[in-house]
Design a protein around this nucleic acid. Structure first.
Lengths: 358, 358
DNA sequence: GTTCATGATGAGAACGGTCTCTCGCTCCAT
DNA sequence: ATGGAGCGAGAGACCGTTCTCATCATGAAC
């Protein structure tokens, strides 16, 4: 242990050698005014003379003053901080976060990130956010059950992105899966495809919606008997597995609607490995328009979720609920947009079969 | 109790409708002890009777008490929080963060994430971390110049991951590029390759080291006249460009050492698109061992940076500097390991030429 | 010349914790 | 008895802000 001479020697010595944090008091002293006034001026509030204002601002700048958000939070009773929980492995989450930053900033909120990781489940990730006094939570692709969500909502406004919340008092923002899927199916049908299968996303967020939307869209086009769902997931391996499965079939589909872009990529890889051309022999549609799909060598036709708007709505929901307490739980569904690139084309009859029996 | 005619009604009403935050005072009241004791017990310090301890813990649990880290920071003078700056688009960063979490936790540190994004440069990302009172900073793949690093280091211990820091008082942790590259080259040479090119990472972190390491390794194997570096970058497009270039050549290399996995992927895609088999006609080695390379359909031979150890060292550096103030700047270089998978094999003479003129 | 808004400034109490100190007790050697 | 140790518990200062309220000039209005 440390010898105890002065008050809290440990704390002092921890930062030893390092410049002490510059506080408002230092600025006040340097400018020759009171702390109160410094606070006022730094927060850009009226009530200080122009000359004083200048002097204080200059002093703050020279000292390299940086407000201590811990103290601010404590004093304000509000942190003006939004917590975002995400999965670092999901490119879509990355896109969302990028979109959330500027929006939150515009509304005067700070953003804190907390990732789920092996050994760090949602509960912990969220606990960290709450501990850091986030006033509202945005959950990207959460698996949380209704009970957890409900209990969260008791301590902070909670918005779930990408799926229905299923808990009272919790907002959700997501893509209108029905429309996205329908656009994709319509596109394929108009190209001349009939045998269109769907690789689903298993129990991932939004996938049950997409599944039923696919069925509905097919029925709507009179293709009820062609409906076929292959169980999958939101990663490359699922796509590979499905691709391998299809390669072995006698009369495989001419088009595939994948669970998401990663899944589509896996699928395409498997198909091309089996010498099946995309889109020559099989058309592939992804879902997400993640940065992967833009890449020139991939050039994936995909359904773009409007990240920008989703982020905007999510932040807005959180903030509104923060300000007007108990609103009813909202469920915002945004229109997605089909981005046609190079992986879809009219079907070429029988080529697939030929190729796969090479 | 505070039934008094409200000081700060604004603050109170901001959280209107929402349950008030449970504080230590509430727990203390419920357990019939003082705040001090509650604090003691919750921090797991000696000095409280077993019975009291139980009573307090139960009370805290029942009330759903959650320590307020803002207040803790303020009171402690220390935040015990590590700030990590990252780029959400880099899979390697994701791996790092996943590794950092448990290590930091073991050392009793909290982790805050701040991402760079369009419209949010390193300066801002770091400002956010500092504002939230991070005691130390870990920068993943930073572009920051020496001046910025030096000024950062004045306010908090700073560790740069993936490149040399180049600023005094700033630690760096990275892979011993020389060894990784040498292993890769040796592996290829032992398989029988001589014509081995390197696609470099442009001005990305670590790439100049890899470039010279490649030259050295080639010379060491007596292949000085085979040295060839193709300018590239750390993404798929660079790989494609290089691949396209090579496809057009008369006597292309039999093996390629890519800047990183993403680059390798692009390269492979381009090659396969040109009907060139990997590894049959060209062997490809990546760098990073990101989750992409594990995928069964990719199965990339790659140089694994030991994420685990890098994270450990980075956190350790930060913490040690935190505790022992002004140590000299360290530069830890960790041994990488070549992971041989399915994209490397002995060369087949002339096949590449045949294939590419098909 | 006294009274009053008005605008600039300062004093001091929160906020929710941590930490040092002191206090009252019991236990045991003198 | 007497005087410490040793331990459980509480008092109160403090961390760096924000916010309310009081104070103090200053000049316009009466």
């Amino acid at each position: 242990m440390s010898e105890q001479l002065g008050p809290r020697p440990a704390a002092r010595q921890a930062g030893a050698g390092r410049a002490q944090r510059v506080t408002m008091a230092d600025v006040a002293a340097k400018a020759g005014v009171s702390r109160t006034l410094v606070s006022l001026i730094l927060r850009d509030q009226p009530g200080a003379g122009a000359a004083t204002r200048d002097r204080v601002l200059r002093a703050a700048d020279e000292l390299g003053y940086r407000p201590d958000s811990a103290a601010q939070m404590l004093a304000r009773g509000r942190s003006r901080t939004l917590g975002v929980m995400l999965d670092l492995d999901q490119p879509f989450h990355a896109e969302m976060v990028k979109a959330v930053y500027p929006i939150a900033e515009r509304l005067g909120y700070d953003v804190l990130l907390s990732a789920v990781a092996p050994g760090r489940d949602e509960r912990r990730a969220l606990g960290a956010l709450l501990g850091h006094r986030c006033e509202a939570l945005v959950l990207l692709g959460s698996d949380a059950d209704a009970r957890l969500l409900a209990s969260l909502a008791e301590s902070a406004p909670t918005v779930v992105v990408g799926r229905k919340a299923g808990a009272p008092g919790v907002d959700s923002v997501r893509t209108a899966e029905t429309k996205g899927v329908r656009q994709a199916v319509d596109h394929l049908v108009e190209l001349g495809h009939r045998r269109i299968v769907h690789i689903d996303g298993g129990k991932g967020p939004g996938s049950s919606d997409r599944r039923s939307a696919y069925r509905a869209a097919m029925r709507r086009r009179g293709l009820a008997e062609e409906v076929r769902v292959i169980p999958g997931a939101h990663d490359e391996d699922a796509g590979i597995a499905a691709g391998t499965l299809l390669l072995g079939e006698e009369s495989p589909p001419t088009a595939v609607l994948a669970a998401n872009d990663r899944c589509a990529l896996g699928l395409m890889h498997a198909l091309r490995g089996g010498r099946v051309e995309v889109p020559g022999e099989v058309s592939v549609v992804g879902y997400d328009d993640s940065h992967l799909s833009h890449l020139s060598h991939i050039n994936l036709t995909t359904v773009r979720q409007d990240t920008e708007s989703i982020a905007e709505q999510a932040v807005r929901c959180a903030v509104e609920r923060l300000e007007h307490a108990a609103l009813p739980g909202r469920d915002v569904a945004l229109d997605p947009k089909l981005i046609v690139r190079a992986t879809t084309a009219p079907p070429r009859r029988n080529l697939l079969i030929e190729a796969s029996t090479n």
